[in-house]
Design a protein around this nucleic acid. Structure first.
Lengths: 224, 224
DNA sequence: TCGTTATTCGAACGAACGTTCGACTCAGGA
DNA sequence: TCCTGAGTCGAACGTTCGTTCGAATAACGA
């Protein structure tokens, strides 16, 4: 029995982490299917067969990246939510937590957002389960907002998934040198979600605008 | 010189359209890289080599799907916007047009949203160009909102890209049998974008909530 | 020093990939 | 009747894929 707690297991898991980092980058750049194990071998400096000493398959590589990312983001969120009870503040914490992690680990998040339905079997089930827990946390916060009488009677599922849409779409456009960082970005998105982009002026009602659309269609049909 | 305008070209382009439909479905299900020409051959009922009579490469298949989808959605939008001047109404039309097309052609839209950076060279440039025009139209509408004194001083780029995020993320969660259709969905999203989810109550300010977050982090550090 | 275990890799496996080629069918004009 | 050109396809091309295997090396307690 070794005195120190397996000195090798530390360096071994360090190397695994290194492999996962490079894998995430390659998956982000070329997509899961578009990336080959040979690409990952080249990027990480580990030989083709050497990779299989640490990870048993390409699927498991993706699984490990996804599970680790979700676990980290979810446990960080729970820690940040402790002791905060105001629903709006909790919502802002969720957005900030998500975007902060997003911009700090853009490769992992891109892989999370893009390779959603690649995994199969048990891997797929496990990732789906933790994702469901994350979604559930957001849903609870929205319901708290509602219970506090602050949210409109919107379909909660749509509201929450739209918020995730705003946040996750970032990977398609955010350029670190040009666009705001996590702090400013989460302020804007929280504000958009809570208050919208209007500044309080009254605007034409939905019904009137839909009527206009209908009229237009009739006119178009008549003209065509 | 044939009397009728090339009677065969009609049936030939019909078959090409059929191939594109099946290709979009296969690409949506397995991803561009994950889908093989053999998958498309099987799905469309056209032999492997027969496909190359109509389309010269797999990349061109993706290019044709993307260009056609963008062209259709953009020209429909311009037609729907004609004669409407109220900025909020124009915004709602954009959202409605996008979601209506989205839910009517979910496969094509999924391919558009997912396979964003697969194309290369001239194909890539052409798709990027028309996408930029579509984005520009949305940006103009937002600026009109602002000029009309109705929009907050938000970063327009972030506001508009967040809106696209809300809309495009739909392909990851929408189930036609369970979730609202385009009409209700675009009402909710337009409303969320314009007014947010709050119903007018005042809530804790951003600054206060950020201070709370900071305090929490200090407390966590002290405890850990 | 030896034996054992952890680590690494070159070489190869069979399968699947995108694409090409030549041959075939068949309808329509000369 | 023959010829042409559009349409179709089976078979094969060379390449790359994920994965395996056995040998080589390094590390270290006995």
């Amino acid at each position: 029995m070794p005195r120190t707690a397996t000195p090798d297991s530390r360096t071994a898991s360090r190397k695994l982490e290194m492999i996962l980092r490079h894998s995430a980058r390659v998956f982000a750049e070329k997509g899961y299917e578009g990336a080959s194990i040979r690409d990952i071998s080249r990027a990480s400096g580990v030989s083709l067969s050497g990779l299989y000493y640490y990870v048993e398959s390409k699927q498991k590589l993706l699984y490990l990246i996804q599970i680790h990312t979700f676990n980290t983001i979810l446990s960080q969120l729970r820690r940040s939510l402790e002791g905060v009870s105001d629903p709006a503040a909790r919502l802002r914490i969720l957005v900030h937590n998500h975007l902060e992690y997003f911009l700090r680990h853009p490769m992992e998040m891109k892989v999370l957002a893009r390779e959603d339905d690649v995994l199969a079997g048990e891997y797929r089930r496990e990732v789906a389960e933790i994702k469901r827990r994350y979604y559930g946390t957001a849903l609870e916060i929205f319901e708290e907002l509602r219970r506090a009488g602050q949210a409109r009677q919107l379909n909660p599922r749509i509201a929450v998934l739209s918020l995730f849409g705003m946040m996750n779409w970032i990977h398609t456009w955010h350029r670190p040198q040009v666009d705001p960082q996590a702090e400013a970005l989460s302020d804007v998105m929280s504000q958009m979600f809570l208050h919208g982009v209007m500044n309080g002026h009254r605007v034409e009602s939905q019904k009137a605008s839909r009527a206009a659309r209908g009229t237009l269609k009739v006119a178009a049909r008549a003209a065509g």
